[in-house]
C-alpha cells in the first residue's frame, strides 16, 4: 500500500513539473504557431541556475531562487524571440529549426559551464521532514510541488480568462490577423507569451532540481515528455496540458517502477490511442 501511495505521489509531482514545462510550450504554440524545441533547454537552464545558487548559499529560499531563475530564463527567451524569431515570421519551419539550433547551443553551453557530472540539488531544509497524513508518510517536498503546479495552473487560468492581457492573448490564439486588425499589438504579445513560457519552464526547472538533479541531457529527457503531454492534451489548451501532464506523470512513474525498461514504450500507448481517436488531442481545438 505504501508503495502505491508513494508512487502515486511521485506521479503527481512529476505531473506537476511536466505541467510547468508543457503549459508554456502549449501557450507558445497556441499563440505563435511555433513548436518551441528550446523549451527543454530552458527547463534545464533553470535547473542549473537553481543548483548553482542553492549550493553556493544554502540559506536562499527555493522560492526566491525559482523566481529569479525564472526571470533570468525569461530574459534569455525574450532576447531570442526578439533577435531571431521575429525575423522569421513568414517562415514557420525556419522558426522551429532555429529553436532546435538554440537548444543545441544552450545544452552545449551548460555542458561546457557545469561539466558532464550530474549535480545533485539539496531539498530545502524546511521541507525535508516527511509529512504524516492518514497514517502514511509522504515526502513533503513532493506534496509542495503538486501544490505549486496547481497554483500555477490557477494563476495561468485567471491570467488568461480574467485579465485584459489574457483576453488579448486569447484573441491572438483564435485569430491573429483579426486581433491585429482591431489594434491588439500581437507582436508584443508574442514576446510576452514567449517570455512567460520560458520563465515558467525556468522556474519549473529550479523546482524540479531536488527531484531530478541537474545533469547534461536533462533537456533531451524532458522535451519528449512535454511533447507527449501536448500531443495528448491538445496543443494550445491549458486544461489539456494540465490533464495531459498528470496522465504522462502517472504512466511514466508507474511504468518506471513496474517495468523499468519498458517505461518509454508504455508512454507510446496513450499517445497512439489519442492520435488514433482524437488527433487534435483530448481538449485541442487546433488542427495543428
Amino acid at each position: 500500500m505504501q508503495f502505491w501511495i508513494i508512487q502515486g505521489l511521485n506521479s503527481l509531482s512529476l505531473g506537476g513539473l511536466l505541467f510547468l514545462l508543457a503549459s508554456g510550450f502549449s501557450l507558445i504554440f497556441g499563440l505563435m504557431r511555433l513548436a518551441n524545441l528550446t523549451h527543454g533547454a530552458f527547463f534545464m537552464l533553470g535547473t542549473y541556475f537553481g543548483a548553482t545558487a542553492m549550493r553556493a548559499n544554502s540559506d536562499l529560499s527555493i522560492w526566491t531562487v525559482a523566481v529569479s531563475a525564472g526571470v533570468a530564463v525569461a530574459a534569455i527567451g525574450g532576447l531570442f524571440e526578439r533577435l531571431v524569431l521575429t525575423r522569421l515570421k513568414t517562415n514557420p519551419l525556419g522558426q522551429v529549426l532555429v529553436t532546435l539550433g538554440m537548444s543545441f547551443i544552450i545544452s552545449d553551453a551548460c555542458l561546457a559551464l557545469w561539466g558532464g557530472d550530474s549535480i545533485p540539488v539539496p531539498t530545502p531544509q524546511n521541507l525535508q521532514a516527511p509529512t504524516r497524513l492518514f497514517g502514511f508518510v509522504f515526502p513533503t517536498y513532493r506534496l509542495v510541488l503538486v501544490g505549486c503546479a496547481i497554483t500555477a495552473a490557477i494563476t495561468l487560468y485567471l491570467l488568461l480568462e480574467r485579465t485584459r492581457l489574457g483576453a488579448m492573448i486569447r484573441a491572438g490564439v483564435d485569430d491573429a490577423q483579426m486581433a491585429r486588425a482591431v489594434g491588439i499589438p500581437v507582436a508584443n504579445l508574442f514576446t510576452i507569451v514567449f517570455c512567460l513560457g520560458a520563465g515558467i519552464a525556468g522556474a519549473g526547472g529550479v523546482l524540479g532540481g531536488p527531484i531530478l538533479s541537474a545533469y547534461p541531457g536533462l533537456d533531451a529527457d524532458m522535451l519528449p515528455l512535454a511533447l507527449i503531454v501536448v500531443i495528448l492534451g491538445g496543443i494550445g489548451s491549458l486544461l489539456g496540458a494540465f490533464i495531459g501532464s498528470f496522465i504522462v506523470g502517472f504512466i511514466y512513474t508507474f511504468g518506471t517502477a513496474l517495468f523499468p525498461e519498458l517505461a518509454y514504450i508504455i508512454l507510446f500507448l496513450p499517445m497512439i490511442l489519442v492520435l488514433a481517436l482524437r488527433p487534435q488531442g483530448l481538449l485541442g481545438r487546433l488542427g495543428a
Binding site: 504554440f29 504557431r33 511555433l34 513548436a35 524545441l37 514557420p92 522551429v96 533531451a220 529527457d221 522535451l223 519528449p224 511533447l227 507527449i228 501536448v230 500531443i231 496543443i235 525498461e261 518509454y264 514504450i265 508512454l267 507510446f268 499517445m271 492520435l275 488514433a276 488527433p279 495543428a288
Partner: peptide, 21 residues
C-alpha cells in the same frame, strides 16, 4: 495523423522514445 508542426513533434517524440530505449 498530423501534418506540419504536429508531424514534426510526433516524429521527434517517437525518435526520442527510441533513443531513451
Amino acid at each position: 495523423r498530423a501534418s506540419g508542426l504536429g508531424f514534426l513533434m510526433i516524429t521527434l517524440a517517437l525518435s526520442q522514445v527510441l533513443w531513451g530505449l
